[in-house]
Structure formats: C-alpha cells, structure tokens
Design a protein around this nucleic acid. Structure first.
Length: 597
RNA sequence: GUUCCGGUAGCUCAGAGGAUAGAGCAUCUGACUUCUAAUCAGAGGGUCGUGGGUUCGAUUCCCUCCCGGAACACCA
C-alpha cells in the first residue's frame, strides 16, 4: 500500500521531531472493525523513533492527518490515530493502478539473490505419502514464491537411491517377484516396488519373532539390534556389499527397480506440478566429502583421533565433536552432505542454499552448517534449513507398519473424486466437458492450500474426515472468487462491452468497496513478507482475507446490476483487479484456477 | 540428563510488545424467482498451560514449573 499521506506524514514528522525521514517507517494498519475509521497509525511504534512521549507523538500525527487534503475525518484513541480517506484519494493510491500493485510485489534489484532449494529427496523403496506431499508442496511453492519476488531460484532433488532400504526391496523381489514387472501387473512402479518392501518387512518380522522365541536372552533387544542376526537381514546386507563391489547382476536389478520407482515418482510429481532444475542421485554422491575431510585435517581445521578417524570439534558452536571419517576411512552421512553442499555450490553458485527437510533433522543441519563455517566458506552463515513439522492422524503418527500411512496417489484420487462429486451435485444436469480437469484443479488446490496454510514448523493434524474440505478457509474458497469474477466478466463481454480505460473509481463509496480496495493493495506487503520469512502461509492467509473481502463485496454490491453504467464500470474494474491479484497469488503458490466452478 | 519445538474457543489453527485476543470447522438463527449459496449476515463459545519478573502496556520478551512431541551415532 503506497498512500500519499504516509509519505507526507513522514516528512512532517521528520521536520517536527528533527529525525531523518528515512528512519521514519510508518506501517499503516487496517482499522479494527469495531473502531471508527478505516486506516490506523499506531503511534506507539513511532515513539522510540521520534524519541518523544506517546501523547506528543499522537497529537502531532492527529494534527497533521486531520488537516491533510486526502482526509475526511480523523480521531485518536489512546495512541492510535484512526482516519477515513476521501474516496477519490483512497482509490488513487490503491487499486486504481492494479498493474502497479502486481509489479511492486518484487524485491528491489539490489536485494536480488541466487537461491538454491533442495526438496523432496525421496527414498526409492516405497511410494510417496502425505509427509512427502508436505515437503514437496513447501519446496515447490517456496521456490515459486522466491522466484515471483524477484530472485533467481534453482530447485534440485537428491534422490536417495542406494542403501539398505532398496536392498530390502531387491531381496524381496528376488524371493517373491516371479519376474513380475509394473507393466505385467499394471501397477505404478513405486507402488510395485513398495509392495516388495512391505513383503520384506513381513518376512523380517517373522524371523525376528522366531529369533526372540529361540533366544530369550535377546528378547529385550530392539529390532535394529537384531536385524543383523536374522538370515534375511544378513542377506540384505550381502546385497548391499555386492552393490558396493559393483556386482553386475546386483547392479542390473538395482537399476531396474530404481527406474520403476523413479518412473512412478515422476507421475506423482507431474500431477503436483513439481519440477527440478537438476536431479542428483545419492549413488553418485555418497562418497563425496571425503577429500574435504582429509584436506581439512591437513589444514588443521579438523583433528585426527588416535585411531585415525577425522573429527570436527564443534564445541565453539555449542555442539559436540562430530566424526567425519571413520578410522577405516569410510565416510558418514554428514560427510556426504558436506560434499553435496559443495557440489551444489559449484553447480549453481547460489548466494543461499535452502533445504526443505523435516524438523527431526534440525540438529543434523546445525552440525552441517557449523562444519562448513569451520571450513571457512563465507556463504555458510546464509545456509537455511526449512524444518517442517510432521503430519499426524487422529489415530496418532503415520506408521507404515500399521498401514496408517496416507498414500499420496490415493489421496489425490480421493480428493479428485470428492471434488468431482461436489461439482456434479452443484451443477446438476449441466456437466461440463472438462469436469475432470476442473475437479483436478480443485482437488490439488484444496490439498496444497491445506498444506501451506499452516506455519511450516507446526506439527499438523490431518483428519481425512475434516481436512478434505472445499468450503471455509480452503483453496477452493479462493478459487471460487476467481470463478465468480470470471463469470461476471464473461457476461459483461457478451453484452458487447469492453473495459473502459476511463474508470471513475470515486463512485464506489460503500465500506465493502473501500475495504476491498485497501486489502487488495496490501498484496505486495503480503507477498514480500512471505518471501522474507520463507513462509508461504503468510501469503495463503492474505489471499483468504482478500477472498473474504471480495465475497462480502459481492453480496452487498451488485456489479452487473449497478445503479449506473459508470458505477458498473468501476465495480468491474475493481473485480478484475482483484481477480488478477488472486490469480497471481495462487499461481505463486503453484495452485491452478479453473475458469468456472 | 541436555537442547529444540509446541500448549490460544468443543476441534483445527492465526496473532510474536499495543486497542475490547481472531479465522475456519462444529452448534444455533437468518439470506438462493437475484452477477455462481464451494457464498453471505448474525449468535453463543476464552483465566491465551502454571507461577513469578521486565514496563506506560505481556498471549507475545526473561526465568520457574507442568504437559505433549522431537533431537542429542562412527544410522540415513
């Protein structure tokens, strides 16, 4: 919102209190509904800047505002100055230049950065579930948001395609596969492989039970401890060894099964709209970072322990010692992450790297960032772990063993079906040809919106009965506003009329119209605040506010049946501007909008 | 044990020094011969986990404690 009166007030206060104008940052607020006025200056916030008493500041602000040309009325309550703008001034400074609003939702050129976002990072042993959907949605929407705000953004995926987990699926396939393939069974590749992972787990649990039966002394050991004592566990580890030694048969099976899974993932990604600038595979990167550990030790940055292991001392960072290279010269998880971080830096030269990874890895990333600081990389303090919370079900945590995991593809299908049924119910006889396309946009919009509405770090509760909604604070609620406006614009153009460049904005005098104009003009603040905080929920909640303001306006102020042709024109211009802003916002969040609903 | 995150309406969540703490859902009332009711208007519903402190002012910042979750590997 760029009101003339704000700049004028800053000049006035600057002169009166002898404070440089640049220091006077006035954030106008929307006046609470139960107060007299439309806009508010919170004078408490100016007190420290102007180094004066609240009363003095408030009186000065009130004096200036009430005598300003743009103002109809003003008053103060405590240290709040509430005022009402002249209608023409309000529109002049807000919605009458919609293109300007959209254009100013961008960081200035000098703040432009190169940002690299890594997200998704799936394991290739089973299909994606709701937790992955939160990751993917957060990652792709954040990438899109930062791009929209003016940064150069690169998104990468690091697929975890090697390790014991895929060996488990391979072993189960060797045992129970009968040479089936996704093609021969008609199953999506990731689900096909995931089923074998489940079969492995079932066989393992059977062996674990037998082992505990036969060896009472092991009864209290954890599954992890006993894994290497089971025949099936040993066999899986043998496959991992063969893989590491490049055994051709093992490699061939591994390649085949990974391809199945990744083909399956790409269908899910496509449906969500997930894309990457580059995809890394852990099978290529898992040995990286060793040389950094070694050269870091030579440079005196890391220590060599008596047994030969290389260790980073992170006590200055409030952390403990961390092994980077074992005494047998093999690397650990974090060593690999050091390597891939450096590789991504080489590949993209970003100013900032962001990882979208669950909050259970907060400690890991603190450690990683500390090590990179020890290594002296100047960009190390810009690294950011977007740590998001888990998703719980009413029954508690999602557990694959208990079959309570919400499968991504199934969820998509369920939501699509529900959206379609809801549409058919509303449309009655007139089922449009593109009903499936529409239902898909509504379903995916509802899902993404739901996942983005919460602050990323909160643990969220997903109740299928309650969370799958198309009414209230949802994506479809916002989409629906666009559909309504589209409908108005369609009807208007079939009247043979086009939007006039001459709009008399000042004709719109109701509180609904003015409120809508004010909220709409706050779009740049919302978008940039979301980008600055790396938090899409800021933008989501803004779009809900704007959609609400439009729906109130819609009910109270008829557009096509406005009293005069000029008023109709003005309301159409207002509606059109709101539609463009909402469309821009939803697109920024990677949410599509159906033309009609 | 240490560290981190959370505790706000019946439920799911916003608010992060400022006005009488908000939204959606659920419950109840009202509004479709009207530009799309996936909508709108209204009602009820709160000791902002507890106890202290900081100040003009604290749900917000600091400390105590209680409750829930997570992390603290030579696992990934």
């Amino acid at each position: 919102m760029n009101l003339r009166i704000v700049g004028d007030l800053a000049s006035f206060l600057s002169a009166k209190f002898n404070v440089p104008k640049e220091k006077i940052n006035i954030q106008l607020e929307i006046c609470p509904a139960n107060m007299e006025g439309e806009l508010t200056v919170n004078c408490f916030k100016l007190v420290p800047i102007l180094k004066s008493r609240p009363d003095t500041v408030t009186d000065a602000v009130l004096e200036f505002i009430s005598s300003h040309d743009d103002v109809i009325s003003a008053g103060k309550i405590k240290a709040f100055v509430n005022f009402v703008l002249k209608v023409a001034s309000l529109y002049r400074d807000t919605i009458s230049k919609p293109r300007l609003i959209l254009e100013s939702a961008k960081f200035p050129e000098k703040d432009k950065r190169r940002v690299l976002i890594e997200y998704s990072a799936p394991n290739t042993n089973k299909p994606l579930h709701l937790g992955h959907l939160r990751n993917n949605t957060l990652g792709m929407s954040l990438a899109s948001l930062l791009k929209r705000a003016g940064h150069d953004v690169f998104a990468v995926n690091l697929i975890n395609d090697r390790g014991i987990h895929i060996c488990k699926s391979m072993l189960a396939y060797m045992r129970f596969g009968n040479g089936d393939t996704p093609e021969s069974t008609g199953k999506k590749g990731d689900h096909f492989v995931g089923d074998f992972y489940v079969k492995f787990d079932q066989a393992l649990r059977k062996e674990l039970a037998e082992l505990r039966e036969a060896r009472p002394d092991l009864k209290d050991k954890s599954d992890e401890d006993l894994f290497a004592l089971t025949a099936i566990g040993q066999e899986a580890q043998e496959i991992l060894r063969k893989w590491e030694n490049g055994d051709p048969e093992t490699i061939a099976l591994w390649k085949m099964m990974n391809e199945w899974v990744i083909n399956g993932f790409s269908l899910t990604y496509k449906r969500m709209g997930v894309t990457f600038d580059k995809v890394y595979f852990e099978s290529d990167t898992y040995k990286m970072g060793k040389d950094v550990a070694v050269s870091g030790e030579k440079a005196g940055l890391f220590k060599r322990r008596d047994d030969g292991a290389i260790i980073a001392d992170l006590k200055p960072f409030g952390l403990t010692e961390k092994v980077l290279l074992r005494s047998d010269n093999t690397s650990v998880y974090i060593t690999q992450d050091i390597g891939t971080t450096l590789m991504k830096d080489e590949d993209f030269h970003p100013d900032q790297q962001i990882w979208v990874v669950g909050d259970e890895q907060i400690h890991h990333f603190k450690t990683l960032f500390a090590i990179l600081k020890v290594l002296g990389y100047k960009w190390a303090d810009k690294l950011y772990h977007l740590a998001y919370g888990m998703i719980n079900l009413p029954s508690g945590k999602m557990k694959s063993r208990e079959g309570t995991v919400v499968d991504a593809d199934n969820l998509f299908d369920d939501m699509h079906e529900l959206a379609k049924n809801a549409a058919i119910e509303r449309l009655g006889e007139n089922i449009p040809e593109d009903i499936d396309r529409r239902s898909e946009m509504i379903a995916m919009g509802a899902l993404k919106f739901m996942l983005l509405k919460f602050n990323p770090k909160t643990t969220i509760m997903f109740d299928p009965q309650a969370s799958i909604k198309f009414e209230g604070d949802t994506g479809p609620y916002v989409q629906y506003v666009c559909a309504r406006i589209n409908s108005i614009l369609r009807k208007y153009s079939t009247e043979g009329k086009t939007l006039s460049p001459e709009v008399n904005w000042g004709l719109m005098e109701t509180k609904y119209e003015k409120q809508l104009a004010i909220v709409a003009s706050l779009y740049p603040e919302a978008l940039l605040s979301a980008a600055e905080k790396l938090d899409c929920s800021v933008l989501v909640n803004y779009l809900l506010d704007l959609a609400k303001a439009y729906n109130s306006f819609y009910r109270e102020c008829s557009v096509l049946n406005a009293e005069t042709e000029d008023l109709k024109m003005a309301r159409i211009a207002l509606s059109s501007a709101v539609r463009d802003i909402i469309a821009d916002g939803l697109k920024t969040l990677t949410i599509d909008i159906p033309e009609a609903m």
